[in-house]
Design a binder for these strands. Structure first.
Length: 918
RNA sequence: GCCGAGGUGGCGAAAUUGGCAGACGCACUAGACUUAGGAUCUAGCGUCGAAAGACGUGCGAGUUCGAGUCUCGCCCUCGGCACCA
């Protein structure tokens, strides 16, 4: 051990050692409890960024913590290596996507290794390798057999910038998930996975994982699935001689020919007597059927609305209601009234039935629409009112100032008057069903998952089109359908594979006649839906993974990643798991027991308002002026211009990115890791300040210096040579049996031991609760306490040496999850061998409660709620004793003398509160 | 607009869940050592005040011996969704 802390030297030493020893290689072992620690796998862009560093430092801390607690820990990593950037590189720079990807994986693996992350590298998977994507295809075929994979022509989300289709999840908010540009619509023939078939299970199984997942993620998933229960109701079209078997787009309708009708979905059938119109989407089949009879101006308006709905969503103009009366009329099956049929821009074809019953009295949108077009507004629900008010007649007919959307009691609703909304909903739905004009219904916001991508760099969809046999799945024994080495890359929206005859020309698996392969590839979110099962059995060539291995390791105990995947990846992977359960591959419904979403790492930049030029903060790029208290008064560029600050997501274009390699080079991996864990609570945003990482180095150096100073002393008793745990046993028996020391040095020893054991408990509790900033603070406090003992090794008494030795051993072991290289090196120094913490049987230090307690504790005394004094008492002193002491206290008496004591509240070990009067 | 999370020193944050607000770190101030310090060590660091002390967790009320924490009403910030019938 060197006297000085050289991060680079010890980091490379232990990284080599771990790799050579296979320290983090895990195997199934029924004798040990398992722990599957997983972090979201990176896309191999070529460079690690600070967000990765944070994500993987957190995961590594958990993995180490669990190892020290005696778990058999599986901690793998891999590569989400299919996807657009590789193809973009091919288009722009003519490189081969495979070589580009492999190069990036190589360099990023180097970066991960330099961080010293404790992965079992033997299990690495990469999505773009045939041995992996073979099983994407395998799953696709299984889902095809199960009827979960199907093809249909539909309007898809299309990103003009990326020239690519997007799933609904990827186009959330009308914005492309990758490039952030607005999304348009396009008609395409696409393969879909039937996620909607699992909508109920996705919702209902959520209760199993609720406790371990962030509430916000659960909520966003629920909102995304968007289940609403209500009813379909059919309104017959008046004076129409058209007959229909359904409302056009709905397969669930009753069979048999009936007069033309329009089917609406409503969650509020109890308001049906308040219907003033039927409003349908511009593309609704009803409109299509009657289009020839409509006047010019109506058609023009419908065209206009249709065009607006096709365009990228503009949230500014969206709120303005627009519509036109089609001239058709529909009959309300409950009241018998006939109402106009309108086209409205606020009704969307892709939700419910594309038609709504407009009830302006009790729906805000309908209210706004009715106001604008002067349609009648009637009250049919009245708030529940008290008995004495019930008689007042005016209520029922009073004009509505705004829509009343709550539940209440029905009025103006014929025979249903007086029913509550709840009762009416149930009874009216039944009534509609019995009379054949409606039924109970549930609709979802969730859509099926469109997985076709007109891209080269993805898993080919294993389907063959044959002129005689039609759409034919590839045979399992022919998997993988391999990508060609290269293709003509244009990025124009057609799959490059469609230009590679060697790829698409094939024989039909059925009839052996010439046939054509599907040339679209799968969405990369397919790869990430099941990758963590592949880690369990990465070399299996027959099936995705061995079910027995999965039975031991899965589900994932702890998953960590960014919350930008709250909807996309995490819904897909939950869906995939449920499919795997139905296939008999796993026996659980939910793949991830606990989920932690870490906050973003952001950078601070300063910019010149006039030019918009950004300057990244620390390395002497700017001059910071502060007042004597340290508050920033101004920041100037080196040429004297006043700058404004901005905290933004780190990115190349903003020039505020921080290169992990550079940080490792300057400060060391341990310091970088320690800092990201310490700087902020894990779910908060983290503003990267280089000064902070210097603080982390200082802490490590302090610990280092301390061990150096005490190293000769700490190896004195031969009994200690067996290791830290043994050392601590010795220390424990030395002091436990000894009478409580009272004088001089031994008092110091006792205080330090107390701090040591309090720290053990705090760090254990905090890590167990997935907090990382607070245990680091606790370790810093312990290090300060060791420092504060202020005894030179030569002058220390035996129990002081023992106490210091115990404190140092505990500190070093508990440092492992945060700064493993430093901890390993210090530990090696303490035990006198280089075998490593785990090989030596190092464990998380044991907490001994009795040692954590002070012999005397300070108890604050309040008089009338204000802190007036402190008394010292033995722990667990009884209430009477504390009260007597408190009332006898000189300072307390200043406030109580001559006054009446009304009440004394005593909280043992906490406080005494005296209430006086007069 | 709706939903969710949150507002604590100059900054990042703690606070045993109703019990000494500001632990720990950064920044800052003073001093020591030093040829030097962007190293290290010592001390200080919520506001006002010379001190005693008073005030202090977005604002206003309330419950309580006692409120950062609980209740009610406002204000603000950040995220998500955005006509979901």
């Amino acid at each position: 051990m060197d006297e000085k802390y050289f991060a680079k030297k010890i980091e490379s030493k232990w990284q080599k050692k771990w790799a050579a020893d296979g320290t983090f290689e895990a195997e199934v072992d029924d004798a040990k409890p398992k722990f599957y620690q997983l972090e979201m796998l990176p896309y191999p862009s070529g460079n690690l960024h600070m967000g990765h560093v944070r994500n993987y430092s957190v995961g590594d801390a958990v993995a180490w913590y669990k190892r020290l607690k005696g778990f058999n820990v599986l901690h793998p990593i891999g590569w989400d290596s299919f996807g657009q950037p590789a193809e973009d590189a091919a288009i722009k720079r003519g490189v081969n996507p495979r070589e580009w990807t492999e190069d990036n994986i190589r360099s990023m693996r180097g970066q991960l290794e330099r961080l010293g992350l404790s992965y079992d590298w033997r299990r690495q998977m990469a999505a773009h390798r045939p041995e992996y994507y073979k099983f994407d295809q395998w799953f696709f075929l299984k889902m095809h057999e199960m009827g979960l994979a199907y093809k249909k022509k539909t309007q898809v989300n299309w990103c003009e910038t990326d020239q690519a289709t997007l799933s609904n999840e990827q186009a959330s908010g009308g914005i492309c998930w990758r490039c952030g540009n607005p999304v348009t619509k396009k008609d395409l023939e696409q393969w879909f996975l039937k996620t909607t078939a699992y909508a109920d299970r996705l919702l209902d199984d959520a209760s199993e994982i609720e406790a371990g997942w962030p509430a916000s993620v659960m909520k966003r998933q629920r909102d995304w699935i968007g289940r609403s229960t209500g009813a379909f109701v059919d309104f017959t079209i008046a004076e129409s001689d058209v007959h229909t078997t359904d409302s056009g787009d709905n397969d669930d309708s009753p069979s048999g020919r009936k007069p033309e009708f329009v089917r609406v979905f409503t969650t509020r059938i109890d308001t049906i007597y308040g219907v003033n119109a039927i409003v349908v989407a511009a593309e609704h089949p009803l409109v299509m059927r009657h289009i020839s009879l409509m006047p010019e101006d109506v058609l023009a308006k419908i065209q206009q609305i249709r065009a607006e709905q096709m365009n990228p969503t503009d949230h500014e103009t969206e709120a303005i209601k627009d519509g036109i009366d089609t001239g058709l009329r529909a009959i309300n099956p409950f009241s018998g009234d006939d109402v106009p049929v309108w086209v409205g821009n606020y009704v969307m074809m892709n939700y419910g039935t594309g038609a709504v019953m407009s009830v302006p009295g009790h729906d805000e949108r309908d209210f706004e629409f009715a106001r604008k077009f002067g349609l009648p507004i009637e009250r049919v629900i009245q708030p529940r009112i008290d008995a004495e008010q019930r008689g007042s007649e005016g209520e029922e007919n009073s004009a509505l100032e705004s829509a009343f959307t709550e539940y209440g009691v029905l009025v103006n609703s014929g025979e249903w008057n007086g029913k509550t909304s709840d009762d009416a909903k149930r009874e009216m739905t039944e009534f509609a069903a019995n009379h054949g004009f409606g039924e109970a219904a549930t609709t979802y916001r969730l859509r099926d998952w469109g997985i076709s991508r007109q891209r080269f760099w993805g898993s080919p969809i294993p389907i063959i089109y044959c002129d005689t046999c039609g759409t034919v799945p590839e045979k399992y024994e022919n998997l993988p359908v391999e990508l060609p080495d290269t293709a003509p890359f244009t990025g124009t929206g057609e799959s490059p594979l469609a230009k590679v005859p060697e790829f698409y020309e094939t024989k039909c698996p059925n009839c052996n006649e010439p046939a054509r392969r599907e040339t679209d590839t799968m969405d990369t979110f397919v790869d990430s839906s099941w990758y963590y099962f592949r880690y369990l059995d990465p070399n299996n060539t027959e099936v995705p993974f061995d079910t027995e291995k999965a039975a031991y390791w899965t589900p994932v105990d702890q998953y960590i990643g960014g919350d930008d995947h709250a909807v996309m990846h995490l819904i897909y992977t939950r869906f995939w798991t449920k499919v795997m359960k139905d296939l008999g591959l796993v026996d659980f419904d939910e793949p991830v027991k606990r989920l932690l979403t870490q906050g973003m790492v952001v950078g601070e930049t300063f910019f010149d308002d006039s030019t918009g030029k950004r300057i990244y903060y620390p390395p002497s790029n700017v001059t910071v002026e502060r007042d004597p208290k340290g508050k920033v008064v101004s920041v100037r560029s080196n040429d004297g211009k006043e700058l404004k600050n901005a905290i933004e997501r780190m990115s190349k274009s903003k020039g505020n990115g921080v290169d992990p390699d550079e940080m490792i080079d300057i400060y060391g991996a341990d310091a970088a890791r320690l800092f990201v864990l310490f700087a902020a609570p894990v779910d908060n945003e983290l503003v990267w300040h280089e000064a902070g990482i210097e603080g982390a180095v200082r802490f490590l150096q302090r610990v280092w210096r301390f061990v150096w100073k005490w190293q000769n002393v700490s190896s004195v008793p031969p009994a200690v040579a067996g290791g830290v745990v043994a050392a601590m046993d010795v220390v424990r028996s030395e002091t436990r049996d000894a009478p409580p020391a009272t004088a001089g040095g031994t008092e110091r020893a006792r205080t330090l031991r107390m701090k040591t054991h309090q720290t053990i408990k705090r760090v254990d509790d905090n890590l167990g609760a997935l907090q990382f900033n607070t245990p680091v603070a606790a370790l810093m406090e312990l290090s300060n306490a060791i420092y504060d003992i202020k005894v030179e090794p030569a002058d220390a008494s035996p129990d002081e040496i023992a106490a210091v030795r115990e404190a140092v051993s505990a500190l070093v072991l508990m440092l492992t999850p945060f700064a493993p290289h430093t901890a390993e090196e210090l530990y090696a120094n303490i035990v006198g061998n280089d075998n490593g913490i785990l090989a030596n049987g190092g464990r998380f230090p044991e907490y001994i409660e009795e040692l954590s307690k002070a012999s005397e504790i300070e108890i604050p005394v309040q008089v009338n709620g204000k802190l007036r004094s402190r008394i010292f008492a033995a722990p667990d002193a009884d209430e009477d004793a504390l009260q007597t002491m408190a009332l006898a206290d000189e300072k307390v008496r200043e406030y109580t003398d001559g006054k009446e004591i009304v009440k004394v509240v005593v909280v043992p070990n906490r406080l005494v509160s005296v209430v006086v009067k007069g």
